[in-house]
Simulated assay, not measured.
Amino acid sequence: MQRLQAFKYELMPTGEQRRNMRCFAGSCRLVFNKALALQNERYEQGEKKLGYAGLCKLLTEWRNSAETAWLADAPIHPLQQALKDLERAYTNFFAKRADFPRFKKKGQRDSFRYPDPKQIKLDQSNSRIFLPKLGWLFYRNSRRTLGVLKNVTVSQACGKWFVSIQTEREVEQPVPQATSAIGIDMGITRFATFSDGKYLAPLNSFKKHEARLRRAQRSMSRKQEFSSNWKKAKARVQRIHSRIGNARSDFLHKASHAISQNHAMVCIEDLQVKNMSRSAAGTPDAPGRNVRAKFGLNKSILDQGWSEFRRQMDYKLAWNGGYLIAVPPQNTSRTCPCCGHVSAENRKTQATFVCVDCGFEENADVVGAINVLARGHRVAACGEPVQSDRSVKQEPTEAI
């Protein structure tokens, strides 16, 4: 089977290369925004949307125009890739997989991609890579790149530049090393509770850095915008955000790797995190209740990274020969695993489950994980359809 995998490294560019990369990212951002503005204008006038070929003709005009002649300094393929990204964004929007494309802002996810592998040279023995109009760039070679190079993406984050090398290689059909199955109940007090009674404690990376981040943001708000001191304060805020994200990513990767290595089938709840973390403020006509408490709950939910954890589990299990099953989360913590009695009275407290019918007593999260595993077995054995009402707002008490 073919495996697509990306290898990300930190670049060590020279001053000139750093300036060129900022210019190239800005050029791609301008092309994307100009094309998006043009498409919006054509829509308002009742005209048909331009395709990728039509946008490429306009790109040639922009590069030859006196107003945007500096676009010719950037490599052409990353500029064309920006138009392809816009076309893909429209496709995802019409397929209801994403929101409508938005304009890009300077300093937010600055990146550009080289889609043609023939123009790229990778010298792993000397830890360097050749990119058009940038030359040879050294990078921190933390691990060896495997497979045939397909494309390269250069991105900027927290003042540092990174290169992501996507490769493709042929691997043998994976066979799971383990044969066990396990159910997982996601939560806040316990990040992941397993059906065998074990659990993972949460990291809460944002909560650990929240006070420090608050002080840095307060200091930044007192500076004159775009002054030298304001830029230094902004860099401090970015470093804290980067540390929070890196810590969370490291925790999720280690947890998902260990679970995918030790289990052939993993059953989890099909949680709709976007609905669960929706604001309770309401509208001026119909204001919400307990807004402050719901705000704190939303912050705790988003600090866990449930969606990213599910994404990592999905592909890591596939790489190891296992598979992931997502089941509806309704009443998983209110159903007795012994007699099957379903009642909200079974869970009078957040942590304890006591069945009002048969008297079975256990931790509520463990009960939820056991029921998730049972539903997963029914899906795997009988093909029971897994459906969850995405239009109904889920109760956060089912996940915490």
Rank of each mutant, 00 (worst) to 15 (best):
S307H: 13
C158H: 13
E398S: 10
Y139W: 06
P328C: 13
M313N: 00
S228Q: 15
Q80L: 08
R128A: 01
M265E: 11
L36Q: 10
S205Y: 02
G46I: 05
A381W: 01
R144Y: 08
E362G: 01
K150S: 07
R334Y: 09
K393N: 14
L149H: 06
L131P: 00
S260H: 08
S127W: 04
A98T: 03
N363T: 01
K160R: 15
P13E: 14
M220Y: 03
S388N: 06
P75T: 10
Q224D: 12
T193A: 03
Q272L: 14
Q2E: 10
A53P: 00
T397M: 07
C23I: 13
V237N: 09
A72P: 00
G322R: 07
L200S: 12
V379H: 02
A369K: 06
F194K: 05
P328W: 04
W161I: 03
H209W: 10
W230Y: 15
A66W: 09
A6L: 02
R140F: 11
D270R: 06
C267A: 15
F24D: 07
K294P: 06
G15L: 08
D270T: 00
L373T: 00
N204T: 10
L55R: 08
G376L: 02
E67T: 12
S279N: 13
Q39F: 01
R310D: 02
K133V: 04
K274P: 00
R190I: 05
P132H: 10
A326G: 01
V386M: 01
F295K: 11
A69W: 13
G322T: 01
S388T: 03
Q177P: 00
P101D: 06
D85R: 11
G46V: 07
Q173R: 12
A69S: 15
I120F: 10
G135M: 05
T332P: 03
A233E: 05
H253S: 13
H263K: 08
S343Y: 11
C338S: 04
L58G: 00
R239P: 00
P13C: 13
L252K: 07
S195K: 05
N20R: 14
Q2S: 07
M220V: 01
G296M: 09
C382I: 00
F103K: 12
G135W: 02
S219N: 14
Y9D: 07
A374L: 02
N20L: 15
E210D: 12
E44H: 11
A247P: 03
R42D: 14
R278L: 11
I188A: 01
A344E: 09
V273I: 02
N275G: 14
A293Q: 15
G383S: 00
E67Y: 11
W70F: 11
H209Y: 13
A351W: 10
C336H: 04
G305E: 01
